[in-house]
Write a protein that binds this DNA or RNA. Structure first.
Lengths: 340, 340
DNA sequence: CTTAGCACTCCGCCTTGCCGAGTGCTAACC
DNA sequence: GGTTAGCACTCGGCAAGGCGGAGTGCTAAG
């Protein structure tokens, strides 16, 4: 059996109607929506076919049909029409993003907020991985007798700072050391820093034991992963009827509490366009009832990720449009084309 | 009518039993728990008195009683016994805090996580207000032709950074300007920085228009409030039976989404000890069904706040103990007494 | 191939009845 | 006078039963 034009149209109608109402969709409703001289009986036959083919399921005998994961998949891949955001909306998003942004962390945080507000779902934003970004400068600032702050700035304007224990040293030595670090590390990829530090150990061994110790501390501090996940609109999930029972919602929240776990959701093959994960396709237990629309954005040479998490019956077209738009805006940030 | 010893004991039993089970507490249960040769009938009379006095309420005729806000208040203020955390627990908390902490932001974030895990409620941590902290250094780093990053370090080891638009200038000028800023601003309170910048405008007017413009941008960027709120254990709220209906939980989450709103919750008179807000005492609509145990901690000269938000029938004794302990630990951070 | 008609299924909702928990009151008791 | 036993009463929660509606699958006719 093949998905001919009529089956396709019916499938689309069922999906869209179900997205709209949240209810199972019956044959009569389809006929009403999909104006073509067809009777409910005919549609029923077609729907039975669609069920057999695995695109629709019946929650129970004699309810209407709802889309299966596979049904949603076909809808997202082939049936759905791309939505254009209204100019109002794009203006609003641009306004929100540009007006409140002081630095990159706040840009990312605001993005999470704006996306969740625009979509009415939960948004996830993963700040850029810094590995491929180049280091711009390294500073050591004393914050205690044996404690210092290492501030590393990247060429994309990120500031990473870490507390490190340091051996006792004079301020002068520390300054000299700061300069030496910058000279040796500026321009290198962040990911290479620990290695580079290790090899520097030999070169600077004339500074004596204290420096070697410091190097170890530094290398150690640098491998530590910085928090990168920002969430917005948690409350939105709670307003979805499928999460009326808060235990369901609790599963979702628990899953999202661990960052490693969230990383799995964003394990996107290379730099691809907007993609969608539907229900069971999802690698995470706990969000099997959710769908995720996800995309990537570049800030300079670093890659960030952005996602919209909603119920399976989410408004995919709109979510995709918003993710795509925000993605672009963010990537433009360092492209210099827009009026940031 | 006065709260004599017996009434007090009964009130305590009702509160503790209700906290334990979540159910209304009947006279028989009280008798079973509170071993003193009393019959249910007597207890019933006492409970009727307690209700009349406003300490207990009946959800409906012929259910048991549950504490009113006022009942909880008396319990918290006078009846509850301070809990001592077990050594295991304090060890665990200390371990969690010290092992994962690289810088102050991560310290605060970890605190939020640890507190929520220890209490099984939602935790809120407000990073220190920087106003009263002294500035240590100011750096300008170029991130684009007309855009720079201002990095301000404080004496307590915070790093604040802001993106600012800058007039075109050479790298050399920028360096000079950086030094000038540090010289002029180091040691001053953060809150004084904008004012100080304004007055500097005159002194540096010889640099010409570009600098004046830059000063404006800087002053502007500095008044912007940095995000300070960290939350942990959102999922915990969802597991509380009183939030089974996720719309209830949604109200809480919505309320917490705005930082200004959260500030109201932490509007603590001066530097006080641990305090408790119960239900309606709460200034926020949406968390009227919650209680908040809150405290303050010092990081150097700056004041941070920490809170545990749970249902009204939360385990106050334990929450207070945990907040108090964590508070101390955090304050010790710069006291140098402990083994950070 | 399409459609009308029909019997059937099953959910949701309401009603009813019943049980259990808990109360307030009264009268007896110490 | 405080305490207690007994009793009638109230109310929520739960299960059972009944009903209506929505929707289906099947069959036979167009």
């Amino acid at each position: 059996m093949r998905l001919d034009a009529r089956k396709t149209a019916i499938l689309r109608t069922v999906v869209e109607e179900h997205i709209r109402t949240g209810q199972p969709v019956g044959s009569r409703t389809v006929v009403r929506k999909y104006h073509l001289g067809l009777s409910p009986a005919t549609v029923r036959n077609e729907m039975a076919d669609l069920e057999e083919m695995g695109y629709l399921v019946q929650p129970h005998t004699s309810a209407g049909r709802i889309p299966s994961d596979r049904g949603y998949r076909v809808y997202v891949d082939e049936l759905m029409e791309e939505t254009k955001l209204s100019q109002e909306e794009t203006r609003w998003i641009e306004g929100q993003l540009s007006s409140r942004v002081r630095d990159i962390v706040s840009l990312i945080r605001e993005t999470a907020r704006v996306v969740s507000e625009a979509t009415n779902y939960l948004s996830l934003v993963l700040g850029p991985q810094l590995d491929t970004t180049s280091c711009q400068s390294v500073h050591l600032l004393r914050v205690g007798p044996e404690r210092a702050l290492v501030v590393i700035t990247t060429e994309t304007g990120f500031v990473e700072s870490r507390l490190v224990d340091i051996p006792p040293m004079t301020d002068k030595d520390m300054n000299a050391f700061s300069c030496m670090l910058t000279t040796n590390l500026a321009g290198r990829k962040m990911a290479d820093l620990p290695g580079r530090l290790a090899s520097m150990k030999d070169e600077v061994s004339r500074y004596g034991q204290v420096i070697t110790t410091l190097m170890d501390f530094l290398a150690d501090a640098l491998v530590e992963r910085e928090e990168r996940l920002y969430m917005g609109g948690q409350a939105n999930i709670l307003n979805q009827p499928e999460f009326r029972d808060s235990r369901k919602a609790g599963e979702v929240f628990s899953a999202l509490e661990s960052e490693e776990v969230v990383d799995k959701l964003f394990d996107i093959p290379a730099e691809s366009s907007v993609s969608v994960l539907i229900g069971e396709e999802n690698p995470l237990y706990g969000v099997k009832d959710c769908s995720l629309v996800r995309g990537t954005f570049r800030l300079g040479s670093a890659l960030g990720k952005i996602g919209v998490l909603g119920p399976k019956r989410m408004d995919y077209a709109r979510a995709v449009a918003i993710v795509r738009f925000v993605e672009e805006k963010l990537s433009d940030f360092f492209g210099g084309r827009s009026g940031w």
